[in-house]
Simulated assay, not measured.
Amino acid sequence: MKTKILSAFALILSFAGFAQSEKVNFSEEFKKENQGKSTVEVNEVKELLTIMLAITDFGLGNDDMFEQRGDYYQRVLKQFKLYKDEPIIKTMDSLLTKNPLNYIFFTGNAQTYFLKNEILIPNPNYILPANKVANVKIEVNPITTYKKEIEAFAKKTNFNEFYKSEKPFYDKIISDYKQYSNLQKQWNWLEKNFDTKINSYIVYTSALINGLNYTGGYENNNFHLIEMVLPTIQKEKDRSEKNNEAFNTRSMFTEIDHNYVEKPSVKFKSEINTALKDREKWVNTKAYGTEYYPDGYKVFNEYMTYGVFILYAEEIYKGDTKLLQEINNEVNAIMIERGFIKMKEFNEELKNLRNKNKKKKIDLIYPELIKWCSLQ
């Protein structure tokens, strides 16, 4: 039986991210190379580590963490499952069993190394970016700890040739992202409509990623970088092309906009907690996962994260009444199912305030929205 233990983690990590710390080192050259850029990448070291984690007993038994549908997963199993009893895979299995967040500490630190001729070469710009997730903190990079074993696994399994042979597949994943989610368009809209500014975005994706998505934000040397680890684009047959685009946009947008929503929320944190002090008016406390939003501030931010996506959709798909109704209905239904029971009313009020203040940054309508919340 496949296990389903990660849904709560997925909710937490969508806004928790990693600690802001000195664990990155953005050189002037790195800043110049990445300024203003948004990229999508199937990172080689991340793919190696994801494959290794996917063939553990824990990974094989968890289709919530790892996407187990599709031809790519079968190709991975064909080449790598023979090596599931290697000591490093057994070690990874025990670490995942002990705490599933070890998945993040491996894959979230993958950019600390490059893979060259089956040797892991340190990346001077990243030291230990994924050093804290939720309430769990590490001081040592697990890739450094198991460097020799990971290198030996890559060599023994002929990973480099596998990665090269899959390049056309990876290229298609990246082109689908550009077509169906358009990170740059989302980024431009958010920069225009909020005061917060981000220097660069990177999306790391893999056909093996399923329910455990996460975001990391790093600031160093006057440079703010956001990284997101997300599944590949999903194209559902029963959706129109525009609806598919909106669906995939939402998945990315509601990761990105945490970085914009939370800054003004911090400014009004006390007022927000007072306005939403009666938590049971805002969340169904019996719904699984709502315990990770224990105060008004966190509840409000989650409402805003999805509410701002609705504002984006209202502008981008202006005039397409049918699509906008589908988007609104789906967002409201998903959030209510998750326990955010006033999503429909919140969205309507947010849209009303936006329509009255079209020339203002969204940051500036927070006081009126918080006042509305206090009157519910």
Rank of each mutant, 00 (worst) to 15 (best):
I198T: 04
E314G: 10
Y72D: 10
L49H: 03
N141L: 04
E139I: 09
Q20K: 10
K192S: 12
V203C: 05
N243G: 08
N243R: 15
M1I: 12
M343I: 02
P367W: 12
S206F: 05
I316S: 07
Q184A: 08
K263G: 06
V308R: 00
I89A: 02
K90E: 12
G296W: 01
I198H: 06
G307I: 01
A333E: 10
E280M: 10
Y177K: 00
K164Y: 05
V299G: 00
L53A: 00
I362L: 15
N135G: 14
S94R: 07
D71M: 15
K148P: 04
E271G: 03
K269P: 06
E166W: 02
Y204D: 01
L364R: 08
T157S: 13
I256S: 05
Q35C: 09
F247V: 09
N328E: 15
K81H: 07
D171W: 04
K155N: 12
Y297T: 15
A110D: 00
L60G: 04
K318G: 03
L375E: 12
M228Y: 13
L225D: 03
N125I: 02
F346R: 04
L82D: 10
M343S: 01
F58Y: 14
P129G: 07
G17D: 10
I256A: 10
Y170L: 08
K132E: 15
F169G: 07
Y163L: 10
K298H: 12
K81V: 11
N109P: 05
L323F: 03
L82W: 13
F153L: 03
S38H: 08
Q68D: 05
I209C: 00
W189C: 06
I370N: 01
S251H: 06
T274W: 06
S165K: 14
L208I: 13
N62T: 03
F340M: 11
E337H: 14
N25M: 12
E315L: 11
E271D: 15
F268T: 10
F340L: 07
E349G: 01
T145F: 01
E161F: 11
Q68L: 04
E262R: 14
F346C: 06
K32R: 15
I55A: 00
K2W: 10
K132Y: 14
I55L: 01
K31V: 07
E241G: 13
K237Y: 03
K172P: 07
R75Q: 15
E41W: 05
G17V: 10
M228G: 03
N25Q: 12
R338T: 02
L101F: 11
L324S: 12
E219L: 15
I209Y: 00
I138S: 04
A275F: 02
K359W: 06
G296L: 03
E151M: 05
G17I: 08
K147L: 07
T274R: 09
P100F: 02
L128F: 03
N25R: 11
F223G: 14
A154G: 09
N273P: 09
L115K: 01
K137E: 11
Y306H: 11
I336E: 14
A54Y: 00
A154I: 01
K322G: 15
T157F: 08
